[in-house]
Amino acid sequence: MIQKDQQQIVEEMLQSFAEELGVSQISSASDIAIKCKVFAAQIEGIFYNQDYILKQAFPQTATEDKYLEMHGELAKKTDRKLSTPAVGGVFMGRKTPFLEDILIKIGTIISTDEESYRERITAVTTENRILKAGDLEVEVPIKTEMNGKKYNLEAGSLTVLVTPPTGIEYVRQDTFLKDGTDLEDFEVYRQRILKVKRNPERGGAPSDYEVWATSVDGVTFAKSFPVARGGGTIDILITTDSGVPSDKLVQKVQAYINEKRPTGADPLVIKPKLFMIDLDVQVIPKVGETLESIRSDIILSIKEYIQSVSIGGTIYKNAIINAIFETKKVVNAKIISFVEEEMVLKTTEVAKAGDINVHL
């Protein structure tokens, strides 16, 4: 597209005036020159506006949320995926049996300990549960009150009963929360729109199932495996920002794909297998740092790297060490437990950090 700045427009206008008046040049102090500068500033704005409009006209170059979402609407209603809460389960109970049933109502609030966790994150129960008389504890489904992948809390994070039901003395979280996702990244959304446009539905091709699965809020990746269980079958593996999706999300994706599948097809939505990585890390802190002051930052950096490895990807020993040095708090680091230089995951495996022991 032709783009002209104010100075270029002024020069062209003055040249045209000079030609029309039959003079060699127009004085920069003349009324004509002053008016040309004023008009040129407005014309320059028109050029920029045309450039802006041209960018918004195509999904490859759109820069505004609303215009990219319009392109998504035209691409078989490819809506931008919204953020989702993290879900999971906790155990609520008491130290000694109670003589009567205890009702744990939907909406009961629990949270992290702000002092030890450094942030107060709340979650609520999503179903009524009853602790039977004589029992010590019962599992209760929950979801976080806020949406986002940061709320996929590790086991042991939720420890506080904010609105404790009468008779309940403690809450315990044995497993990490799942399915929490952020609002779909702008560039990720753009690529998903382009994929839909470039790969129109073909009556239930493997790529169709991947597009259908990744259109569901909470799903970040999908891979199809044709003829997985024999002729006419296809398995669709899905993952989330937390790695392994919840059963509820799997059921949601399965229901959506069942609506889209061609007659006679037998699709099955499956979870990846969780590959836990335990690490023994030896470090030498920088001067002024202590093991206690750097341990949590090192563990967080390692977890972020492991979480970034895609399903079926490769985990590199050097990358783990680099993640440690990125904290800028150590002068040396060594992975004791990671013997191989790299670890290749299977096509159905997703990595998750397990126990990380950081010591001197």
Rank of each mutant, 00 (worst) to 15 (best):
K4Y: 05
Q8C: 09
Q8M: 10
V10I: 15
M13A: 12
A18Q: 12
E19S: 13
S24V: 05
S24G: 08
I26G: 15
I26D: 15
I26N: 15
S28G: 11
A29I: 13
A29F: 10
S30W: 06
D31N: 14
I32C: 14
A33T: 08
A33E: 09
I34P: 02
I34Q: 09
F39R: 07
I43W: 04
Q50A: 15
D51K: 10
Y52A: 08
Y52G: 07
L54H: 07
L54K: 10
L54Y: 06
L54C: 10
Q56W: 06
A57S: 11
K66E: 13
K66V: 14
Y67Q: 03
L68T: 04
E69P: 07
M70Y: 05
M70H: 03
E73F: 06
K76R: 09
K76G: 05
T84S: 08
G89P: 00
F91E: 04
M92V: 00
P97C: 14
I102K: 00
L103C: 03
G107P: 08
T108R: 01
I109T: 10
Y117C: 03
R118V: 12
I121W: 07
I121H: 04
T122W: 10
I130Y: 00
K132M: 04
G134D: 06
E137M: 08
E139S: 03
V140N: 00
P141E: 00
T144R: 03
T144L: 07
N147M: 15
K150M: 15
K150E: 15
L153C: 05
A155N: 08
V162N: 11
T163Y: 02
T166H: 01
V171E: 01
F176R: 09
F176G: 11
L177D: 02
K178P: 03
G180L: 10
T181Y: 05
T181P: 03
V188S: 13
R190L: 14
Q191A: 14
L194D: 06
K197E: 14
R198E: 15
R198Q: 14
R202V: 07
G204C: 12
Y209P: 11
E210H: 07
G218L: 09
V219G: 13
K223T: 10
S224E: 06
F225Y: 04
P226N: 04
G232P: 07
I234T: 01
D235A: 02
I236N: 02
L237N: 02
I238L: 06
K252Y: 04
A255H: 15
I257R: 09
N258I: 08
T263E: 13
T263V: 13
D266W: 06
P272N: 09
M276E: 11
V283N: 01
V283I: 14
I284R: 05
V287N: 09
G288A: 11
S293M: 13
S296N: 09
L300E: 12
I302E: 01
S308L: 12
I324K: 00
E326R: 05
A333T: 04
K334D: 13
K346S: 14
T348R: 01
E349W: 02
G354P: 06
V358A: 10
